[in-house]
Each structure stands twice: as C-alpha cells, then as structure tokens.
Design a protein around this nucleic acid. Structure first.
Length: 380
DNA sequence: GCATCATGCAA
DNA sequence: TATTGCATGATGC
C-alpha cells in the first residue's frame, strides 16, 4: 500500500466531513449524531417535517434511495448524502485499510473457500473484494494499491462471464450467436427487446437492456426491474416478456431448473458443485419465490466461480512453469491480479488471459481482457 | 463482549 | 418484490 497517500486521503476526508457536519448542524439547529439512523430520522422527519418515504422494521428509513427522493425538499439532505459518502470512505477504507498494513507495507486478506453457498471465495480482514471502483472519489483508493517497488500489476477480468455461462447452460441460440460473433451483449439484447437494428440502439435502451440482463441472472420480477430503471411495472413487464420471447432458451431454462430443483431438492453447477434448497418446499410464498431465484442463480454464479477457481490453479502453474517471478495475488470473482516485473508483463498478460479463456470449452467463447499498470487503479 | 440492525461497498 | 458476500457505527442486552 502507498501508506502516505492513504493517510493524506484520510485527512482530506476528515476536513470535508467536518464541513458537512457544520452545515448539517446549522440546518438542524443543533448537534446530533449523524451516524445514528434513529437521531437522523428524528431530525429529518419530525423536526424538519420531511415526508417519511419508507420505513424499516425499527423506524424511519434514511437510506440513499430515500435521501435521493428528499434531496430537493431541504438543503440538509444533500449534505447528509455527501456526509455518508465521505464517512464510508473514511471509516471502511482509509482508516480500515491503514489498520491492516503489515510491517512490510503490504496488505494481506484471508480468503475463505467454504463460506459462500454458490462456491465463490469470500475475503475478510480486510475484504479486498469490495474496494470502491464506481465513483471517481471512491476509486482513488485503488491508486494506493501498488505492487512492490519497480514491479507492475497485470489485471485480467472475464468479460460477461455469467451471461456466457447462462447462454451455455440455457442453450439459447440467439444469446450464443451474440457471443460467438463478438457482439456487445447489452446492445444486442436491446436490439432484440426493442426490435431495432443494433446500430440504432440508444444509450437509454442499452442501459435498460443491461438492467434486464443483470436481473435475469438473479431471477427478476417486473416490480424490481421497474424500481431499478425507473419505468412503470407495465413497461418492465413488457421488457421481460419481450426478452424471454427472444431468448426462448432462457425462458425454458428458468422453467426447467426450478422444476429440477423441486424434484431433486438441489441444483448443481457445470462442474457438479451442489446446493440444496429446502426452502423450495416452504409453505411461505415469499420464501418459496426466493428459493426459486436461488435455484435459477446458483448454477450461473456457481459455474462462474468454478471456472475462475480452475483458472487460478492453471494460471499459478503456468506462471511457475514459464520460469517467471510473477505471482498471482488476488481474485475478485471474475478478475485475477498478478504482480510481476515490468519485463514479464506482456508474457504474463498472454498467459493469464490464455489460461482464463481456455479453462473450459463452452458453447460460447470465454473472453478475458487484461491491462498492465503501476497501481490497481491503472491496471483495471 | 456479543448480537442485531441499517447502511453501503464489490462482483 | 433481484444473487453472493463483508465492514462499519449505533444500539441493546
């Protein structure tokens, strides 16, 4: 870790947090613990009389979605949103990571191989599988993950591995065709769902199609899709219907995997990993529906986990056999990170992506893309 | 000190 | 009323 930069980043956050706090206390007319959802709820919904959008089982919800809806109703709300972003980065990442830097300046996670229900690894103490990447400020943290002096990172990730696994397992001809011809799957899906040529797909259509692809893997409901992309339930239903009309293999898979799971009591991955799902027989509708989503998702997520685990073994072996100093140092579900001297980087890149892509022969190609960089931020 | 809750980060 | 995880601070026991 680049400890000094991490310390400076933490100090910058401290200053910005203090400014937020002062603004919030000014609007509230006094101090309170902004971290307490109970106290914050009282200020927002009782003192300032903002409309309570949603409840939790213990009181008012103040989560990001709720705050977003209230943002135009009182200036304090945006300050609270910024406060949440900053304190998250400070406590979990800046302070949290500083605490676990070893005497040699390196951070080591502990991987658990037997925790998740699907076969994924999990990472603890610290969790290196949830380092921020989606926002500009958050991704600054990744600039502080650096290799040993003079070395570089090679970061390789699978492209759309779960949808490729779905295309394979579901034997869906259209989805397979999209991957075989190297198309952008979300654009191809939008073209199918909205009935337009790929080159006429608008950014909004692509975004909606991406959300549907994402949701399908998890066992979507029209309600949740509507929530996610901000359309009516009827529109969301139309998207899903159109999707499953076009990707008929996916529709059949969804039906068959649930039937099989109910019959056998478990589902399996392509490599035979098994997950029992006793909740399929629950008398509670919600629990039963949840179990069906698990039956749908587990073979997909679990097969992807099997694939990358096998790739890890082969990558490690191939790097060793090539006589390289390169070392596999991290896995993040669909991504492998290797540390190596810069003169090895191009060979490492070829070995890692080559092993990841050839780990299994599915009905669609597996594609891995790699970058080289002097930090995790640069290499991703 | 431990458990639970709400929240938010990742794939 | 979308899958899988883990860390944090607050809160209560």
């Amino acid at each position: 870790m680049d400890r000094n930069t991490l310390v400076s980043f933490g100090q910058m956050l401290t200053e910005r947090i203090a400014a937020c706090e002062q603004a919030i206390f000014g609007y509230a007319g006094g101090e309170f613990n902004i971290n307490s959802t109970k106290q914050l709820g009282e200020v927002l919904f009782e003192r300032l009389n903002l409309p309570p959008v949603k409840k939790t089982k213990t009181g008012y919800s103040t989560n990001a979605e709720v705050l977003e809806k209230l943002a135009d109703k009182h200036p304090m709300v945006r300050q609270v949103m910024e406060y949440r972003v900053l304190t998250k980065l400070k406590s979990t990442y800046a302070d949290g990571l500083l605490k676990v830097i070893g005497p040699d300046g390196r951070i080591r996670t502990t991987f658990q191989n037997l925790v998740t229900a699907t076969g994924r690894l999990s990472s603890t103490d610290p969790n290196l599988q949830n380092i921020p990447v989606r926002t500009e400020l958050g991704s600054e943290i990744r600039k502080m993950f650096v290799p040993r002096p003079g070395w570089v990172f090679v970061d390789a990730d699978y492209s759309q591995i779960e949808l490729r696994v779905l295309a394979h397992i579901a034997e869906d001809p259209l989805m397979q065709e999209a991957f075989r011809t190297g198309r952008d799957i979300h654009t191809a899906t939008a073209a199918q769902v909205f009935g337009v040529p790929p080159e006429e797909v608008t950014p909004l259509q692509r975004r909606h199609a991406k959300a549907v692809n994402f949701g399908i893997v998890y066992g979507i409901s029209e309600f949740s899709l509507a929530e996610d992309i901000g359309v009516s339930r009827y529109e969301a239903k139309a998207y899903i219907d159109s999707y499953l009309d076009r990707y008929a293999g996916v529709r059949a898979y969804m039906r068959e995997i649930v039937a099989e799971a109910k019959d056998r009591g478990y589902v399996t991955t392509l490599f035979g990993r098994r997950r029992y799902i006793p909740e399929l027989k629950s008398s509670n509708y919600n629990i039963r529906q949840g179990a069906e989503r698990i039956a749908l998702n587990t073979p997909i997520q679990g097969t992807a986990a099997d694939l990358i685990k096998l790739a890890m073994v082969r990558v490690d072996r191939a790097l060793e056999e090539a006589g390289l100093q390169a070392k596999l140092i991290l896995q993040v579900h669909d991504e492998l990170i290797v540390e190596c001297p810069p003169e090895e980087a191009e060979q490492v890149r070829a070995i890692v992506t080559g092993q990841m892509e050839s780990v299994a022969q599915l009905s669609v190609p597996l594609v891995a893309e790699a970058k080289v960089g002097r930090s995790w931020y640069e290499a991703k």
